[in-house]
Design a protein around this nucleic acid. Structure first.
Lengths: 364, 364
DNA sequence: CGGGCGGCTCGAATCGATTCGACCGTAGAA
DNA sequence: TTCTACGGTCGAATCGATTCGAGCCGCCCG
């Protein structure tokens, strides 16, 4: 009298809740209740259902069906601004991820990693079609606008880390402008006047090149713009190069250009991220310059850069805390509340990559 | 004649494909085809559907419904052995994640981060109920057995990195025993005879403590056992401490015990991971010992440890390549093939944490 | 002894899309 | 001119579970 789990065609198909219910001699609804435990089911029945399930090798309710019915998937998406590979290379991202997992812990939700390249990038599951209950948009993403539009249409609540994208989306940010200004002021106090900058990209295409007024005007990335403004607050005439992404290699390339002409070398370079700063330091040393003797370098982030022997002077931002706050905001959103945006403060860490310029040192 | 997207009760509900179809004056099936683009639909019709969709603010097919019907979700799960927070702290994990994303790129699938604590850990979505098409089990996980059982019942294909778990599950591993033996031999050649070891945990409970025959016998973790065997191949009598996890702090605690008795200090310590090794180095230095002068330390992994001034002598394993291979195996599995297990080779990197013991140095 | 109240179970509708087979009209071929 | 083939569209079944309201039965209380 033992019923076969699957149809007579073979054991290709997995048993369903209906099979289990049949075997246990109850209705599908009761079986469901027995599993979710959320309804009144007698212990005897529950046991019978569970027994039938284990006999049939039933692996529990199908999450796809369940989430369709319930309208929730128990998954929170994290949208990174770049290819996942690149994102893993920057410790800041890892730290924020870390903070996010901590922040959404009360949800017990899974974390789905996505990129804003979405399905264009050949991905089957992008932000356009991921079974997520909410998302966290991470980082200086130039194309964040498109992502937000998609999310809004899909009715998925979102939180943004760095990048104001709409009144209805809470934003977790830091004092980009103030912080950079503090760093720049520190450079000025050391006596630097001839300062250049290496920035993060300003547009969705992540165009690399010289920092021109055109580029600045076309900016869609707050992080880059704000940090640039902070620098301008102290060095109004500052100019430099735009990197395509936050990486050591990009910093190196940018610095090579900035330092190419020996006659016109700046005495200090402000980099908009620690990875870029590390690249600048490397480039300078490759050119035979000493850091901080011939060139001071200021970074941003406060991460430890692999393989860099220096202790970067940098603006330390609380990455983990940012992630944590974003996670909490997600929890709050899913509760139906409207969490406020938050802005964290960065602090200047003085390392060994900054010093008075030679001229000033000579003068004193 | 404009139809409202939602019901008359308000705009609370999002429009569905049916709404769009109705508005465009076609059937739901046709609308579906227009979106997926997989069937023959006239351009005119398709355009009409798309127009209706955008007018209604339709955000595309619901991924939950789609995946229920299709039986696929486009998501690959990654099961970490510990709390996500802990996993992010070990660069080896990050590197493997990195490799995996690269390996599954042809799938265009999303990456869902899970832990093997599953729903016990208070998680709503654990390995028992995650909408994944396949999973990669990462790392020395003692409770991998349970996870595998769950997956098998659910009929979800899996690939394991480190940890043989069943014939039907391809495994990506490294030459743990051989590699450790090579490292141990190197220590012996330097003249070390009194060597201790700090191992990874041997059981699901991650019990910390002395390395006893009991613990070894009860081992359910191949990585720890194999590496221990490799050490025994050279130092049959070796003993030491079992750490609860791979972290600097655990290494430090273990080393404190091993080095407590000044009269019986080993001249070298083999650590089963670089993080543990880093902890050992720190502990030694805190005790006023010099590394490698008073104590040689051998690690495993080949990562760069934040904040450690030494260049660890270690066995460098190809983490990214492992992840990549695992990703490729997943792709292969989903194609219905049966990928083979793979075993990578580690290489000994001689850094500055190993040297001949004082006694040998004195003798020579 | 009868009405009422709970506790347990069941049926049926529903979530939102995909897909298979049928159907229809037209164009090209015989 | 008639038959075939095919592009295009539609209906209806299906994926697998959850959930709401209704029904049944036994027990308690009046």
């Amino acid at each position: 009298m033992t019923r076969e789990p699957a149809t007579t065609t073979g054991a290709i198909t997995r048993p369903t809740l209906a099979d289990v219910a049949a075997k246990a001699g109850v209705s599908a609804s009761t079986a469901s209740l027995a599993f979710s435990g959320s309804g009144p089911v007698s212990d005897a029945t529950k046991e019978r259902v569970l027994a039938a399930a284990s006999e049939l090798g039933y692996g529990g309710p199908d999450p796809r069906a369940r989430s369709l019915r319930q309208g929730r998937s128990g998954i929170v998406g994290v949208v990174l601004a770049e290819r996942l590979r690149a994102a893993f290379l920057d410790p800041v991202n890892i730290q924020m991820l870390d903070g996010i997992t901590e922040g959404i812990a009360p949800l017990g939700a899974g974390l789905l990693l996505l990129t804003d390249l979405g399905e264009e990038g050949g991905n089957a599951v992008g932000i356009e079609s991921a079974p997520v209950d909410a998302v966290v948009l991470i980082g200086c993403s130039p194309r964040v606008g498109r992502s937000v539009e998609v999310l809004r249409r899909r009715g998925i609540p979102a939180v943004a880390i760095e990048g104001a994208v709409g009144e209805d989306i809470p934003e977790i940010s830091i004092d980009n402008r103030e912080a950079t200004r503090r760093g720049a002021e520190y450079l000025r106090e050391l006596g630097h006047a001839d300062v250049a900058i290496v920035t993060l990209p300003f547009d969705p295409a992540r165009t690399r090149g010289p920092l021109t007024p055109d580029v600045e005007r076309g900016s869609t990335v707050d992080t880059a713009s704000e940090r640039l403004r902070g620098a301008r607050d102290v060095f109004p005439e500052i100019t430099g190069r735009v990197a395509a992404t936050s990486s050591i290699e990009e910093g190196r390339e940018a610095a090579k250009v900035l330092l190419a002409d020996e006659a016109q070398r700046p005495t200090a370079i402000i980099a908009q991220s620690d990875l870029l700063a590390a690249g600048v330091v490397l480039a300078a040393e490759e050119l035979g310059m000493s850091v901080p003797g011939d060139l001071s370098v200021l970074g941003f982030d406060g991460i430890r850069v692999d393989g860099l022997l220096h202790d970067l002077t940098t603006l330390v931002q609380p990455s983990v805390a940012k992630g944590h706050a974003a996670g909490e905001a997600v929890v709050s959103l899913l509760r139906g509340e409207s969490p406020d945006s938050r802005c964290f403060t960065s602090t200047l860490h003085v390392g060994d990559t900054t010093a008075p310029p030679r001229s000033a040192a000579a003068r004193s």
